[in-house]
């Protein structure tokens, strides 16, 4: 008997452990053939990036991530999805986001994982403020992120 997809959405300041999350997502479900993971980290963009501060819209953030996870779980018949996004001040090299998808077969997990990170970048209310040696400024949304998102809509 196949279980309902398990969906775990977390927005937190603290770091996460991808290995521990994979074990938690698997949770002894013998129908799971594998998990795909995307772990995003703060990139040392230029020599002068000191930190990124992540702001979000409490309530709407969790709702939008939940909706995306449910959409992915249904579209690719996933066994489970975990999305963890950190907020607050993060230093270059630190983990910022985890997308984890589990399914019976690898293709569904890999594709759904890619969809979720693309969709999260344009649909979930997070904003990055860069702290550089010359001062702070808000990161502008990239056209490339919208194009990546649009690619999935075209397939719907």
């Amino acid at each position: 008997m196949q279980r309902e997809p398990s969906i775990r959405i977390v927005v937190q300041a603290e770091d996460f452990d991808p290995g521990q999350e994979e074990a938690l997502l698997h949770d002894g479900d013998l129908h799971i053939g594998g998990s795909a993971a995307f772990v995003g980290r703060v990139r040392a963009d230029g020599d002068d990036l000191l930190a990124l501060t992540l702001e979000h819209y409490p309530g709407m953030t969790e709702k939008s991530l939940q909706a995306l996870a449910e959409q992915a779980a249904e579209r690719w018949q996933l066994s489970g999805v975990t999305v963890i996004h950190r907020i607050g001040r993060l230093l270059p090299g630190e983990r910022i986001v985890l997308v984890l998808t589990a399914s019976a077969h690898r293709q569904a997990a890999l594709t759904a994982c890619e969809f979720l990170i693309d969709a999260l970048k344009t649909d979930a209310p997070f904003w990055k403020c860069e702290e550089r040696t010359r001062g702070k400024h808000w990161v502008e949304a990239k056209a490339g992120d919208n194009n990546a998102r649009q690619r999935w809509a075209n397939h719907e």
Partner: peptide, 23 residues
């Protein structure tokens, strides 16, 4: 997420923000 023609009702929470940049 709303559009310009989305109706608002008494007591609605209306948030205005720049395009998002998470992930």
């Amino acid at each position: 997420m709303a559009q310009l023609d989305t109706p608002v009702h008494d007591g609605a929470e209306v948030a205005i923000f720049p395009p998002v940049t998470g992930g």
